[in-house]
């Protein structure tokens, strides 16, 4: 991808952008890196993914969220072609899954996927070889990445001798060694210290800036807030919500208002849009019904009391996550789906 690197990535994804002819051909404004249409997968009678539709645009950081056992791993495996959907279809970079397109994806699994008894350097060399990187070139890249992650002195050590965090860094190098167009990262920050977490974040954002697609599956909501342009929340194999981060927040936010005031707020209790009031005397948290109009509420308040502060709260992704799937214990299921 040749997206102009000088521009901010958010600006780029929304506006005019130089793109490969593929986009012109299918006529859509935003080419999808991954398109899933009506995909279902069943294991021994258990429906892990239930007619899922998903479009992940190119050049963004996309958060794939969901509670344990929601079908995330199955979805990821279908995207990677590790398993095939029973029904529906998956398209990657505009084409069905094949040997060619495999080269353009990088996958970082949730658990370590390295040979414990192989030396770090040999291991990366083997994985690079699987992706058709010529020998000299892959040596150069391995050296470069090891330098960047401060692993150079460990290159001749077996993976089992490395700490968990170091192994995670090796795993990440294995994922990006062939400079893929789509990065599929499942809990990439596990075991990393703050310095390396920041390094990894910067690299991810840099990938997105260069027009590549980063799919992030994680339980760490603060990282989703910081990194993702767009999210999809799935539960019990179905999509609960998806869209740009700001849109999702807007859809599910704005229903709590904090008010600081002098006087009595009895008026709130009777108001049509109000569901419940947590009154603390000088301060109240007002939970509104879905259809409530915050402006009308403010207007009626101003008539009765002296409003010192009135704030429509933006919920965190964490709140939305709990709101949408909370209290909804995931069903028991075979371990492989977790």
């Amino acid at each position: 991808m040749q997206a102009p690197g000088a521009l901010g990535r958010r600006a780029v994804s929304g506006t005019l952008r130089w793109r490969a002819p593929r986009e012109a051909a299918n006529g859509s404004h935003m080419a999808a890196a991954i398109e899933i249409e009506g995909a279902s997968k069943r294991f021994n009678g258990f429906l892990a993914v239930d007619s899922l539709d998903l479009a992940i645009p190119e050049g963004e950081v996309y958060g794939l969220l969901g509670p344990n056992g929601a079908g995330k791993t199955t979805t990821i495996r279908m995207i990677l072609g590790i398993i095939l959907p029973d029904a529906g279809r998956v398209r990657i970079l505009g084409q069905p899954y094949d040997a060619e397109v495999r080269k353009r994806i990088g996958y970082l699994p949730e658990e370590r996927g390295l040979y414990p008894k192989m030396k770090l350097g040999d291991q990366l060399d083997f994985i690079g070889g699987l992706d058709f990187i010529p020998r000299a070139e892959r040596r150069r890249r391995i050296d470069e990445w090891c330098e960047r992650f401060d692993l150079t002195s460990w290159k001749n050590h077996k993976v089992e001798e490395l700490s968990r965090g170091m192994q995670q860094k090796v795993q990440f190098i294995a994922t990006v060694l062939h400079d893929p167009e789509v990065l599929m990262l499942d809990e990439p920050f596990t075991g990393l210290d703050p310095v390396n977490t920041k390094l990894l974040k910067d690299i991810m954002l840099d990938f997105a800036k260069r027009g590549k697609t980063v799919i992030l599956s994680t339980h760490r909501m603060e990282q989703v807030e910081m990194l993702c342009d767009r999210i999809c929340l799935i539960n019990k194999g179905r999509k609960v919500v998806d869209g740009a981060l700001a849109e999702v927040k807007a859809q599910h936010g704005g229903r709590t208002v904090q008010v600081e005031y002098d006087g009595s707020v009895a008026v709130l209790e009777g108001h049509a849009g109000v569901e419940r009031v947590d009154n603390y005397g000088k301060y109240a948290e007002v939970h509104l019904r879905e259809e409530a109009d915050t402006q009308a509420l403010l207007a009626s308040l101003v008539r009765e009391v002296k409003v010192r502060r009135f704030e429509v709260m933006t919920p965190s992704i964490n709140d939305i996550f709990i709101q949408l799937v909370g209290g909804d214990a995931p069903p028991p299921e075979p371990e492989e789906l977790a």
Partner: peptide, 16 residues
């Protein structure tokens, strides 16, 4: 069994 246990196989199956 070793490849399965160390989960290398997931990385490999994403490639071949």
């Amino acid at each position: 069994i070793e490849e399965k246990g160390s989960r290398v196989v997931e990385v490999l199956l994403a490639k071949l």
